[in-house]
Nucleic acid binder design. Structure first.
Length: 828
RNA sequence: GGGCAGGUGGCGGAACUGGUAGACGCGCUGGACUUAGGAUCCAGUGCUGCAAAGCGUGAGGGUUCGACCCCCUCCUUGCCCACCA
């Protein structure tokens, strides 16, 4: 240890030493307790930004602390390398995405190392490595065997900017989340995963995710969107067909005066009378166009067209018009609704616009009967009136189940559940993704269902390409322009065949990467069962809350399937989830190039050192809250570390003194302060309150700074304080901590050492300060022996002058005593 | 339109289970040391007030001996979803 604190000198030194000693390698502690600490792996863009730093730091603090607590810690890092940003960059500067990715990884890794993250780099993975995506393809094939993959023609979100299909989850306010281009709806064939088969399980299991933020659980619940109601089938007059509708308000069915179906409802082709067909098609095309061009928050005016077909009301036998309407969406429920204008606001507006009858059948319970004509729908529950015939007099709640039951026994429907969640379309018309392991053979697969590439032919590798010729960002998918890739032989008949030219959504790659870290070199399986049993589930997962409904839902789904495949024992991937807040710029806006308020970690490290950057980031606020960058606060953190250093330097001669021995007087005070701090820091770290943990150490340093030890017990107490302080600070400021610990005699890295235990006898207080209130207002404080009971505290309180003044001439009606806290006199 | 999370000094934030609101840091004020100090150390710093005291956690109400914390109404900021039947 030298007199001056020079982070630029000590930080690389320790980083090299950690690496040389292999301190962060997982699996070195036998069968002891394990901890798998994971942060959402990044797309390796050019430079690390503060948001990354914060994300990884939260994990790093937890990992470092866990190692000191004796856990065998798995803390890996890898690269979510495939995907649009890399491909778009490649198009822009005509370089192969793989090249750029390699470069970025190198610089990203170097920057990460400079921050002092404690990763086990021997497990590094990258999704663009064929040895990795081979297993994504393997999963695709397994999923297909399990009936979880299918080809569908669907309305897809097409981003003209990205020239590809994007998932619902990737559309924000009608714009592509990535490029901000307005998304258009297109009809396309695509591969999809049947995630909806797991909707109920994904929903049910949420109750078990006790250590997930409520916010994320609620978002997922919302996203899955379970809705319980009834499906009712209406016969179409003279067509031999029925239209099923889904409703949550079966109690209102007698108020149904029309049916409304989505403009693109498949049944329309068969039920629309010939003379109406042309108008129908024009309407559907018009609506498709309007839907595609509508703005973000825009709600289109309700439009519809009478199809000319008629449906028979299953309870009344009445013939109801079937309308095609733009407010009915084809991919929710059955794509058709019953129009009950009196009791549904949307139906009301539609009926009003087109002059359809409005028939109230529910009356407010105990209120005034509804007056015709209504000026708005009555949407609350009530009592069924005479219009509901045999169901009249029932409450809405009762009627819902009774009517659903009646539909069931009548053979025209019954209780039904619908989910808002849709299947997961994974086809992307891009190059830089995992190739879908399918070939098409006209000879033996004329239907074009796709023939799986045999497992022993995996991986289907991305071909090397001429970037300028293939990545044009226009036209058919890039891989279609690579004949050597497209043309192949059919694995089934040996004849000529064409490869699938679409690639997979990158969310596929990130759905199971946490498993590959367990066993990154495995050639037989994505990972071995043995490794899974040792390390899964992930104990702590850290990432942004923006992944609540995409990644975090997909990888829960994936884990359920992996469990079914026997790859792992748990069907949930993560025990504890931490969603970290954003790092805003000094101006309070989200750091982004757009605002020019980005702070590069490298510049901070150069100026103040990585430890200062780390301490600032952890001290600025709790992990899940947004924090604001502040140059002054960073300086404050640097200043704190300087103070620690000076304190350690000043007392370093005491390092040679033997530890322990009876302390009294000031030596005892020093020891008390140290152990009390240790207790609180330990507790704060356990509950992830890193900002307050750091505040505790600051308090301790403030207490110790003015002390000039005058004798050996005091000096020894000071040395102990420094040793424990180094341990406490090491998750946050690991480099400085190592340097201090070494100066005070540590023979091994703190990471190899143990988290210190506090001495309970030094933590217990001798005296306590009680607050004394009169009628709930603070009037004084009294200090008493810690063992003092109510009577003693009361006596001391009543003896206090200020308190006495407020009790003067009043009767104490009640005295409330809270042990260790306060005494409250209620007077009158 | 629906859902979720927030609103505490000049600023970032503490207060973990209803028990002394403002820990810790920044900033500011004064002092010490110094050729100097943007270094360091010491003291102070919620508001009003000379003081006694009073007032204070977005606003208003309620429960309680006691409310930043629980309940109701409202305002406001941010995020997410959205013709979802």
């Amino acid at each position: 240890m030298q007199e001056r604190y020079e982070p630029q000198a000590i930080e690389p030194k320790w980083q090299d030493r950690w690496e040389a000693e292999g301190l962060f390698a997982a699996g070195g502690r036998g069968d002891g307790p394990k901890k798998y600490v994971l942060e959402m792996f990044p797309y390796p863009s050019g430079a690390l930004h503060m948001g990354h730093v914060r994300n990884y730091l939260i994990g790093d603090v937890i990992a470092r602390h866990a190692r000191m607590k004796g856990f065998d810690v798995l803390h890996p890092m890898g690269w979510d390398a495939l995907g649009l940003p890399a491909e778009n960059a490649a198009i822009k500067d005509k370089r192969h995405p793989a090249e750029r990715t390699r470069e970025n990884v190198v610089s990203f890794k170097a920057e990460m190392k400079r921050v002092g993250f404690s990763y086990d780099w021997s497990r590094e993975i990258s999704t663009d490595d064929p040895a990795y995506y081979r297993w994504s393809q393997w999963f695709f094939l397994k999923f297909r065997e399990m009936g979880l993959v299918y080809r569908r023609t669907a309305h897809v979100n097409w981003c003209p900017g990205c020239q590809t299909v994007i998932a619902n989850e990737q559309v924000k306010d009608g714009l592509c989340e990535r490029s901000s281009d307005p998304v258009v709806i297109k009809q396309m064939a695509e591969w999809a995963f049947r995630i909806t088969r797991y909707s109920e399980r994904l929903l049910q299991n949420l109750d078990g995710l006790k250590e997930w933020p409520e916010e994320v659980v609620k978002k997922q619940r919302n996203w899955i969107g379970k809705s319980e109601g009834a499906e009712i089938d209406f016969a179409v007059e003279g067509a031999g067909e029925t239209i099923g509708i889904f409703t949550t308000r079966a109690d209102t069915i007698f108020g149904c005066t029309y049916l409304a179906v989505a403009p693109d409802h498949p049944l329309l082709e068969t039920i629309v009378p010939a003379e109406q067909r042309e108008a129908m098609q024009a309407f559907a095309a018009d609506q498709a166009r309007k839907a595609a061009t509508k703005g973000r928050d825009e709600e289109l005016p309700k439009e519809g067209i009478d199809t000319g077909a008629r449906a028979i009301h299953p309870f009344t036998g009445a013939a109801l018009p079937i309308w095609a309407a733009n407010f009915v969406v084809s991919d929710y429920g059955t794509g058709a609704v019953m129009g009950v204008p009196a009791h549904d606001q949307r139906d009301f507006e539609f009926a009003t616009a087109y002059g359809l009858p409005i028939v109230p059948v529910i009356q407010p319970a105990g209120g005034e009967p509804l007056q015709a004509p209504l000026d708005a729908a009555f949407t609350e529950d009530g009592i069924l009136d005479a219009g509901s015939r045999t169901f009249a007099g029932m409450s809405s709640a009762d009627a819902r189940s009774v009517i659903a039951g009646a539909a069931k026994s009548g053979g025209f429907g019954g209780p039904a559940v619908t989910y808002r969640q849709r299947d997961w379309g994974i086809s992307r018309q891009r190059y830089w993704g995992t190739p879908i392991p399918i070939v098409y053979c006209e000879g033996c697969d004329p239907e074009g269902e796709g023939i799986p590439v045999p497992y022993d032919q995996l991986p289907v590798e991305l071909p090397t390409i001429d970037v300028a010729a293939v990545l044009t960002g226009r036209g058919e998918p890039p891989l279609a322009k690579v004949p050597s890739f497209v043309n192949t032989t059919c694995p089934r008949c040996g004849g000529p065949a064409r490869r699938e030219v679409e690639t997979m959504d990158t969310f596929v790659d990130s759905s199971w990467y946490f498993g590959r870290f367990l066993d990154p070199k495995n050639d037989d399986l994505p990972f071995s069962r043995e490794a899974a049993d040792r390390w899964l589930p992930v104990d702590v997962y850290v990432g942004g809350p923006e992944h609540s409904t995409m990644h975090l839902l997909y990888f829960r789904f994936w884990t359920m399937v992996m469990e079914e495949l026997g790859l792992c024992a748990d069907e949930e991937p993560v025990k504890r989830l931490i969603t970290q807040g954003i790092v805003n710029g000094p101006d309070g806006r989200k750091m982004s190039k757009r605002w020019g308020n980005v702070v590069a970690p490298a510049s901070i490290i150069e100026r103040y050192g990585a430890d200062a950057a780390r301490v600032f980031t952890m001290f600025a606020g709790p992990p899940d809250k947004d924090i604001q960058w502040s140059d002054e606060q960073v300086e404050g953190s640097a200043r704190f570390l300087q103070r620690v250093w000076r304190l350690a330097w000043k007392n370093v001669a005491a390092a040679a003194l033997p530890e322990g021995g009876e302390a009294e007087g000031r030596a005892l005070e020093i020891r008390r302060s140290t152990h009390r701090t240790l207790k609180r820091v330990s507790e704060d770290i356990e509950r992830l309150s890193f900002n307050t943990a750091i505040a505790r150490t600051m308090e301790m340093v403030n207490f110790l700074t003015p002390i000039e030890p005058a004798n050996d017990p005091e000096r020894a107490a000071m040395a102990e304080a420094m040793r424990l302080l180094a341990a406490m600070l090491s998750p946050f400021a690991p480099h400085l901590a190592e340097e201090v610990a070494e100066a005070y005699g540590a023979k091994t890295s703190l990471q190899a050492g143990t988290w210190p235990a506090y001495d309970p006898s030094l933590v217990a207080a001798q005296t306590l300060v009680y607050a004394v209130q009169v009628n709930g207002k603070l009037r004084g404080e009294v200090e008493v022996e810690a063992s003092a009971g109510e009577d003693e505290v009361r006596a001391a309180a009543e003896a206090d002058e200020k308190v006495r003044a407020h009790l003067e001439g009043k009767t104490i009606r009640k005295a409330i005593f809270v042990k260790g806290r306060l005494m409250n006199f209620v007077v009158g």
